[in-house]
């Protein structure tokens, strides 16, 4: 199992994105998130994978909760709205906070520019986001539209794939060194992926 967190600003559409992915519904209501969690079983490249998705509060007053999400999440969707530059600018700080807490440079992350259906209100160009992705070492970047269900599955799949790849790489490392297997979770059991949407 894997845990994914969707993180970021209020009103960028994290919840809509998640609801589309998990339940195939378009939620249109003013309903700010405090903390919602979902589970979904998906098939990635022939492997079944149970995803736990944590949809987090974008409202900044709840930032004190972020640390816990970052600690427990295995992968992160960093969502901004293409109609708001400030939401895009916040990504950098979020990422460095994740790396700090994870104490590694290698954390599964996907950059998501949501609301791609609102082209006329675009405030963040495609190029700018690509530049950011490159400066972070080619972190995958997608533009999505939760409303039109565009690229929704793709971002979650991509993140899930990253988490799995990381597990395999690190799993072998541990056996090779046969050193402290502090995590203790047996290799055979299907592990849950936690994904946090920031």
């Amino acid at each position: 199992m894997g845990r994914i967190s969707a993180l970021l600003d209020g009103g960028v559409g994290k919840s809509c994105l998640t609801a589309q992915f998990v339940q195939n519904v378009w939620v249109e209501s003013y309903d700010p998130t405090i903390e919602d969690s979902y589970t979904k079983v998906i098939n990635v490249d022939g492997r079944t994978c149970m995803l736990e998705i944590l949809d987090t509060a974008g409202t900044e007053q709840f930032t004190a909760m972020r640390e816990i999400y970052m600690r427990t999440g295995h992968g992160f969707l960093l969502v901004y709205s293409i109609t708001s530059l400030s939401t895009f600018q916040e990504l950098t700080e979020l990422r460095s906070q994740i790396l700090r807490i994870k104490e590694t440079q290698n954390v599964p992350i996907v950059i998501v520019g949501n609301k791609s259906d609102l082209q006329e209100d675009r405030a963040v160009t495609h190029n700018r986001a690509i530049q950011l992705s490159q400066s972070w070492g080619r972190v995958p970047f997608y533009e999505t539209s939760a409303r039109n269900r565009l690229n929704v599955d793709e971002v979650f799949m991509d993140l899930c794939r990253q988490i799995m790849r990381k597990e395999i790489v690190e799993g072998t490392k541990v056996t090779k060194a046969s050193s402290s297997t502090m995590d203790g979770q047996g290799g055979g059991r299907k592990k849950k992926k936690f994904c946090t949407i920031l």
Partner: peptide, 17 residues
């Protein structure tokens, strides 16, 4: 539109906090 009113984190929301 009012559905996005006061949702984003802006200097205004920081001010309120």
């Amino acid at each position: 539109e009012y559905s996005s009113l006061l949702r984003a984190n802006t200097p205004v929301s920081r001010m309120m906090t």
